[in-house]
Design a protein around this nucleic acid. Structure first.
Lengths: 199, 199
DNA sequence: TAATATTATGTACAAATGTACATAAAAAGT
DNA sequence: ACTTTTTATGTACATTTGTACATAATATTA
């Protein structure tokens, strides 16, 4: 999207937008007067003229009486095509979508908690030591869910399984034995996603 | 943190804050007048009085002339302790940190791109089909890096390896053979993280 | 119950804000 | 070279904004 829009702007307009983006990022824009000072202009009308053009072309928008740079500019550039595009722009034209991991992983919901995985008991399904696991807090879970359970007063991440003897926790690693609760099973929540930092 | 702060507020102040948070979320707060209307008050001084208290207690803060709810409230609640806490608050007191995956994965940097993994060629190191892989665009990479390379005009994610014959791409799955470039290797970037949505 | 703190509303006003209008310089297009 | 568009600056002004001050009503605490 970025590149498509950019073609509608003059060099100066684009420069202005880039400075604006660097200066205020995803925050609400302050008053014309303040922007004037921050960007070293001498008349706040310069700012007004630029912002009106940018607003018309959807680079900025009004939310709750405040101006913002279009939030899409701060999301991740997701490339869906597996095929490499042409030379120059290399691939800006292949960006079909903008995404936010905080949104995808529902970070804002009060029931969402994040834990750090410790140990390799879930490595067979690609959950490793030190991964972040995103947990939705809820008591109920069904067979097959990856749950954060409380065993011996400690949190543990396992797959919830069921057999003739009842519910139990299955580590996803052949070297670990299943965990059977003495009485009942305390479930803190279910895993809705993971994130791993590689570098 | 949330709970620590909450204890400093009266019921009405906390209600006000919750409505404020739900209404404007992470956006900049509009004018007292607008808030007055949105929250159904009859005097904007009511708003001023509440906001002054909230500002004093760090629930809201000023950035670039605009008031915001403390950004921490919109980040993920990371629980570092492995030990379950007491009954009631269950664990609010165990939240030592607030994090943002968009920040951790450097989503905002112009050189960051996200791809969807297709296939199981990297499953041995916990990168699965349909995972999001976060790529930092750069030409150079060193042995051991997980790279997004361009082979036959298609993107492919592999580990960069080196032997007597030179650099090559190693799939992290025994069933796949290594890929040796005919001439040179085109590297698009290196993987800096992955994210997987489980539900 | 009495005393105190919090909450709600209103008025008045100086300061700041966005907008309209005007003009000249610079850049781009023909 | 000439014309048009874009960019930069300034002035004037009605509107809006935050703040100070004042006063009840309501909760809370002693």
């Amino acid at each position: 999207m970025e590149n498509i829009l950019e073609e509608n702007l003059t060099k100066k307009q684009l420069d202005f937008f880039k400075t604006l983006k660097e200066t205020y990022q995803s925050q609400a824009l302050p008053s014309y007067e303040k922007i004037k000072q921050d960007l070293n202009y001498k008349s706040k009308n310069s700012i007004k003229q630029y912002l009106e053009i940018l607003k018309e072309k959807n680079f900025i928008q009004k939310i709750n009486d405040n101006l913002y740079i279009n939030p899409d500019f701060f999301k991740a550039k997701l490339v869906l095509s597996r095929v490499k595009a042409g030379f120059a722009g290399i691939m800006d034209d292949k960006i079909e979508k903008r995404i936010s991991f905080d949104e995808i992983l529902k970070i804002n919901e009060p029931s969402t908690f994040v834990f750090k995985v410790s140990g390799d008991s879930m490595c067979d399904i690609g959950i490793f030591d030190n991964d972040y696991v995103i947990i939705k807090k809820q008591q109920n879970a069904k067979e097959g869910d990856i749950v954060l359970a409380i065993v011996d007063n400690e949190f543990t991440l396992k797959t919830l399984k069921k057999d003739k003897k009842g519910m139990y926790l299955k580590p996803e690693n052949k070297n670990y034995p299943p965990i059977r609760p003495k009485f009942s099973l305390t479930i803190f929540g279910i895993a809705i996603g993971i994130t791993r930092k590689l570098i």
